[in-house]
Write a protein that binds this DNA or RNA. Sequence first.
DNA 1: GTGAAAGCGCTAACAT
DNA 2: ATGTTAGCGCTTTCAC
Lengths: 341, 341
Amino acid sequence: MQDKEITIYDLAEKLNISAATVSRGLKDHPAINKKTKKKIMDLAAELGYRSNKFASNLRKQKTHTIGVIVPRLNSLFMSSVISGIEKAVNTAGYNLIISQSFEKEAKEKTNATTMFNSRVDGLIVSLAADTRDFSHFDTFIKKNIPLIFFDRVAEDIQCTKVLIDNFKAGYQATAHLIEQGCKEILHVTGNITRNVYRDRFKGYKKALADAGIPYDPDLFITNELTEQEMQTAMADVLQRDKLPDGLFITNDSSAAFILTILKDAGVKVPEDMAVVGFNNDLISRVTEPAISTINYPGNEMGENIARILINHLDGEADLSFTSTVILNSELIIRASSQRKK
Amino acid sequence: MQDKEITIYDLAEKLNISAATVSRGLKDHPAINKKTKKKIMDLAAELGYRSNKFASNLRKQKTHTIGVIVPRLNSLFMSSVISGIEKAVNTAGYNLIISQSFEKEAKEKTNATTMFNSRVDGLIVSLAADTRDFSHFDTFIKKNIPLIFFDRVAEDIQCTKVLIDNFKAGYQATAHLIEQGCKEILHVTGNITRNVYRDRFKGYKKALADAGIPYDPDLFITNELTEQEMQTAMADVLQRDKLPDGLFITNDSSAAFILTILKDAGVKVPEDMAVVGFNNDLISRVTEPAISTINYPGNEMGENIARILINHLDGEADLSFTSTVILNSELIIRASSQRKK
DNA sequence: GTGAAAGCGCTAACAT
DNA sequence: ATGTTAGCGCTTTCAC
């Protein structure tokens, strides 16, 4: 440390007032004289005073920190959610700690522990692909630390959830493929114990049913969504006698990757197979053909999440804390699925 | 708060020892009897004790928190760097606060202030595209808070920098295009006040010079790398009488986007124009044709950065703190630039 | 409108 | 090997 850190005592001494008054003045306490306040503020600015959060948190037993655990940060969707959260949180004077589970339950658990030990005032989570056990959230619930899930939610935990209507999105994507003349629609998705995948799958099945197309289990592939597994799964599909004529794939990166596999196999998109992805990541726009996809309001979702949490923390909206917020999503039609003019 | 929070005093009382002993036992102090340690540990686990970081930080005047400011998190490169940093930092018992500047100097400044007020023990930065003024880092330097830049570095600030040899990478990319028969190579890049872009540009010019090709300013485009600007810039290029026959583009997303523009304009890649990108993001592999690119070791970079910082903080390596670490990069040749078998 | 004083939970110098 | 003690900087109750 170069310059010594300035404390409220230093300010108090120089102004010949008490530390208590300085403390109050700094946070605009109503009982303090305007002039005194101004003197305090000015001196603080001049001396480069910064409040010591540790002392303050220690005293107040509140950290003004919010934790976020997400599977990964490398999608447009996630970064817009985070950006939305950050915006709302910053303006409310809270800090953010972000960590990634890399789709692993084990990492999610240690992340949750770290968050707990950092005494976050609230926790925002989108679950890892392989999380089956939710006991790492028990400590939060027990201590009444508010918990919000978004996108990939834990359905058995009673708390606020913010997500899109995955059933509807799955339905729309599938209905669109049917409308384009597809009859054998392959659905490639993640593990359906996770709500997002299960609901999309339900929407897919309902759209088939509504169109009088029987559901064929051979046209349903679920895996960990890695390139490796996509490769294997598609190799298998492409060896079948009867190829599917439509693909509904649960995320754009996988859809883009599968497009390269189809290309290598000489399958024409959309003529032989029409393709719909999910997320509206940049990647869906640069492939040849561009991929039809479901667009989700990441930023809006982030801001919503943060606002709900902060209102709760600031004690303004205790009541509606265990609600579910559904945001709109939309189908964006591009060349990969467009067969009719 | 539900259950009251357990403190070392609670543990001390139940075990009939002093709080100091508990404190020492908890951190495995060598002078404490093994049996006592075990008793302490066991009781702590049983009662769900968690150390109060605020008290500890307040006392130790150290936060064990490291701040990271990056332009954006949505590239494979950035997420691997972060992942590398997180890994190294976690194992060393430090926490991480991550924030994004979204390529804006203003946001970078407020982020830096937040980090400063959160009293991070060290700060890791990759600069926003439009940062010209570096005064927001002065406070860190003045207070001797270690600062590390990576990738997009501030050259005038004396501190550790971790990056790749952008000159070499730019040279390789350009030389490769020349080797493929390109004579009119357009270089599209960011503002060359930023080291990464300037050095790539220098490499580009050197490769041209070495091949006896004169540098043509019309074949050099610098902008903010947004889709909008790419669109405008390429529209201009495509109207020229003499089109370039090679493109060296400073990042894969832009390269992928430009590929779509070329496609719309009926330009064949690589026949009419050979294309090389930068970063080896997933996106470079899914376009048609796949994009040749420069691969950078994101994870390795992250781990390096974190280790250097932590060694410094833990007082193990004070000396070499103002060094520059150059990591290897490599050219990956794909279809977008391959004209000769 | 302002001050005095206690205490948040932990650590470390010093003592034993 | 363990205990005593003081203090990190802030907030807040209770005085006046």
